[in-house]
Nucleic acid binder design. Structure first.
Lengths: 209, 209
DNA sequence: AACAAAATTAAACAACTGTTTAATTTAAAC
DNA sequence: GTTTAAATTAAACAGTTGTTTAATTTTGTT
């Protein structure tokens, strides 16, 4: 994973790019949009990042670099298996929640052949995350708390997918559940939705059918 | 919900548009792309649909109109509650699986302020679907099979979200699970992934914590 | 065959796209 | 204070964008 030097101006551009990419998509956002909102000259994006494509690459690296660390720390913690899984879910939701913007872009752009190169770093991240999840589940299985026949790669889709589908349909759920302010929306995620996901995963991990 | 007359040429355009929108996004696809692949003149899209925006509206209506009917039919069927939920999940996965393209576009485009009008029909569809799900769960609760404290609006995010996250990360899972052909991929969805989701929802609906 | 409506076309439109250039300003080093 | 490198700018570049126009062809009706 390549290292990129980030000065204040670069970070300013990245933050603006995240918001705009999230609102209007990668293709839907022009460099002129970005430069206008970041109050810089059009040429500065090319000057700093080389191209719009490489700006996206830098953005992905910038926004995902510390998730890996957080999961590895969780692995070392001394917790009951079910508590560890619950904390794993909280970390996922929190990280993605804080970086809703970029994850939305990734989510859509990931399958585009054009964007293949930008997504390699993200694939590596996912592989690492899966290893962490595997370890946590294995710990629970060793203690006899979790079932042995769990398809671990399908746990992440349920955790992240549930959260994401909720977030992607935000206008629908805001109306349905009367989450009139941004605070109420975020609060619903932090409490009810997180609890729902934790309950779901727990049921799946320990329930005997 | 407005009715749109569809002749062969229109359908041809819609099918091409779905594929291209899915591959490259709404903004990433040009009318020239569409007309080239559909082997028609550039002006025909405006001639038939009025604008690129209204083409998207027509596409959404065209691809989602029969899901509603399928769910309403399921409601009437005489099945055990758990069987009904399993069938509900199958319908969801099958419908979205057959229309992967357009649902991917919707999923991303849904939050864009630019696309607000195109998505109204889709919001109505979701409201109807939720009502069907509520009825099915209520039937199971009346028979004493399902728990009473289920947050029904969060079931759909788990069902669709899990499937969608899997599908959106297709390249990752293809590599991870060695799903080398399209047939193997689709087969994995039809068997393992569907089973995983059914198992998850069942555990959530009947598991006492 | 004659007419009218619908379908199809190539060309043009103005606006926008990402990127590059060359000139100018700012900052740092000596 | 002079020199060198970095940062910033406006302007131009060559393409592409969605849409409209006006002319032509095809189709269906009488």
């Amino acid at each position: 994973m390549s290292y990129i030097e980030l000065n204040d101006k670069k970070i300013q551009i990245l933050d603006v790019a995240e918001k705009l990419f999230s609102d209007k998509g990668f293709e839907g956002t022009s460099i002129r949009d970005i430069s206008k909102h970041a109050k810089i000259n059009i040429a500065m994006v090319s000057y700093y990042f080389g191209s719009k494509e490489r700006l996206l690459e830098a953005l992905i690296l910038y926004k995902t670099s510390d998730l890996k660390l957080q999961l590895e720390n969780l692995l070392q913690e001394n917790l009951e298996p079910i508590e560890k899984v619950n904390k794993l879910i909280e970390i996922y939701i929190n990280r993605i929640s804080c970086n809703k913007g970029i994850f939305r872009v990734i989510h859509f752009e990931i399958n585009s052949e054009k964007r293949e190169k930008s997504m390699i770093a993200f694939t590596e991240l996912k592989k690492g995350n899966l290893k962490s999840v595997e370890s946590i589940i294995a710990q629970g299985q060793a203690k006899g708390v979790f079932r042995k026949d769990i398809i671990i790669p399908l746990l992440t889709p349920t955790i992240i997918g549930t959260f994401f589908h909720f977030h992607m349909n935000k206008p629908f759920f805001v109306e349905l559940l009367n989450l009139n302010t941004e605070e109420m929306y975020n609060n619903y995620i932090k409490t009810s939705l997180t609890k729902h996901i934790q309950q779901t995963i727990k049921a799946l991990l320990v329930y005997e059918n």
